[in-house]
Design a protein around this nucleic acid. Structure first.
Length: 500
DNA sequence: AAAAAAG
């Protein structure tokens, strides 16, 4: 079976030949003829199966005849993240190079005006995330009456992320007489129900069993102490041990805040790392991903914004700095490596707090991930440590330093605002100076304050009116603390860990 | 325990 057998137009086949593609993947083989026939499709396929080409190729052929009128797009593709939308737009350019199709990429974080201009000229295909699409619709910039071809991609993820009300709103704006393609990595009952709502007599196409981690990915778990510094040290030891094998690596954290912290820590230790998460300014997201794809960055510390669907070649390693909260996400994360027949390695750090998550994960993947010892042989959680970390009141009596009587500014030259604070240095210093005891109540207020600030930081940049200057100076590298060192950093560093 | 998406 070759692409020539699927009924695609000569121009499309020409573009495929230019790209060196000859053999369709199973999903392409099944989906392309169905889409060309005008059938609705319910596709169960994970990313990396060639799903995107499975719908873009026949769409290009269908759209080849006719022309999009001003503000009246002829087709619409909904994606859950900006990066995925951009990736799909890119494949339209690649496969449609011998067609004269026009497209608009409607995603947040980029100029509304530019997108309006493109819409005005008329487009054949809209590729959008739900928020921006609805925004532009409400501004009267889009008429969906002529949008007779709809793709809902990554439906399970849209559901997870709570986008379904938006998606439903959008679908209700489209003409009922249309062709709909609905793709999901899994087919849970809830997804199927949604599919039935959006589709008419769909052809069901299924490839790749759900939730089975790619057999080509070697998985290991390293148990380490839950202290953030210990975790970062453990990560570095893994990176060092795998140094010669790493082509490029993704490092996943559960929280955006930790993405920033881990990224800065790695940078400080001389690693070639960048950060990617959803609170970063959109230009920085685009730029970082581009550089990572171009092999200009070896390590990318990221949130689950990068967990699904992103097709980044040469990812040889995935490091899970945290055990993912949803076990499904683990499968997606490690699926960023071992792609296209290549082998990959996935490492995960787990602490005593992760026992339950780890058990869930083992249940999902139907196997126990092999444990490894720390490459440098330290900081494995011992029963003794477990005890002390539970006996907080006792520990607090002697091990804490006071942050009040000797303010940080007095001991150290102030850093320029734009320069990231060296988190490791702060923590190390905590150990050296650990002297004056401090009652529990005294730290309570600064701790709360620190918590608030961190929360503010985790919010999108547009909401941080009072701190917007920081964003200009360093869109990703801004410290979560400013000059203020929150109490949480000054305490809870178990001495036993740092002595080890 | 989170992340994602509009401004």
């Amino acid at each position: 079976m070759t692409f020539d057998d699927l009924g695609l137009r000569p121009e499309t086949l020409h573009a495929l030949a230019d790209l060196g593609y000859q053999t369709p993947t199973p999903i392409q083989e099944k989906a392309i003829p169905m889409v060309l026939m005008g059938r609705d499709v319910l596709g169960v396929a994970q990313t990396g199966t060639g799903k995107t080409a499975g719908f873009t190729l026949p769409m290009i052929d269908i759209l080849a005849e006719g022309r999009g009128r001003a503000r009246m797009p002829r087709s619409l593709i909904l994606e859950p993240t900006r990066e995925l939308a951009a990736q799909v737009a890119e494949s339209f350019d690649r496969y449609g190079k011998y067609h004269r199709l026009t497209k608009a990429l409607l995603i947040g974080g980029e100029s509304v005006k530019d997108q309006q201009t493109v819409l005005q000229r008329g487009v054949d295909v809209l590729i959008a995330t739900p928020g921006r699409l609805l925004d532009l619709f409400e501004r009267g910039q889009i008429l969906l009456a002529d949008t007779k071809l709809l793709v809902i991609d990554e439906a399970d993820r849209m559901l997870d992320m709570g986008f379904m009300p938006d998606v439903e709103r959008i679908v209700n704006l489209l003409p009922p007489l249309r062709q709909t393609l609905f793709f999901s990595a899994t087919m849970a009952p809830e997804i199927r129900k949604l599919g039935n709502k959006f589709l008419h007599n769909p052809k069901e196409i299924s490839v790749a069993p759900p939730a089975s981690p790619a057999a080509t990915v070697a998985q290991r778990v390293l148990h380490c102490h839950s202290d953030p510094k210990a975790k970062r040290a453990a990560l570095r030891s893994l990176l060092d041990a795998e140094k010669d094998e790493i082509q490029s690596a993704l490092i996943f954290c559960n929280r955006k805040r930790d993405v920033d912290l881990v990224y800065k820590s790695l940078k400080r230790h001389g690693y070639d790392a960048e950060a990617l998460h959803g609170d970063m300014a959109q230009p920085a997201r685009v730029e970082t991903l581009k550089r990572f794809k171009n092999d200009e960055i070896r390590l990318l510390v990221c949130s689950d914004v990068a967990a699904r669907g992103l097709d980044i070649p040469r990812v040889s390693h995935v490091f899970n700095f945290d055990v993912p909260i949803n076990s499904e996400d683990y499968v997606h994360r490690i699926g960023r490596t071992g792609r296209a027949g290549r082998s990959g390695k996935a490492f995960m750090l787990a602490t005593r707090n992760d026992e339950k998550l780890l058990a869930n994960l083992h249940k999902l993947i139907g196997a126990k991930i092999e444990e490894i010892a720390s490459p440098t042989g330290e900081t494995v959680e011992t029963p003794a440590l477990l005890e002390t970390s539970e006996a907080k009141p006792r520990r607090s009596r002697g091990k804490r330093r006071s942050g009040r009587d000797e303010p940080r500014e007095a001991r150290e030259p102030r850093q320029p605002a734009a320069e990231p604070i060296e988190a490791e240095a702060i923590e190390a210093e905590t150990v050296e100076t650990g002297a004056a005891p401090q009652p529990e109540r005294a730290v309570a207020k600064p701790a709360a304050e620190g918590g608030r600030r961190r929360k503010a930081r985790a919010e999108p940049a547009r909401r941080r009116r009072d701190e917007s200057h920081d964003d200009e100076a360093s869109p990703v590298g801004d410290t979560p603390f400013g000059d203020h060192v929150p109490a949480f950093i000054l305490r809870e560093v178990p001495a036993a860990v740092l002595e080890g």
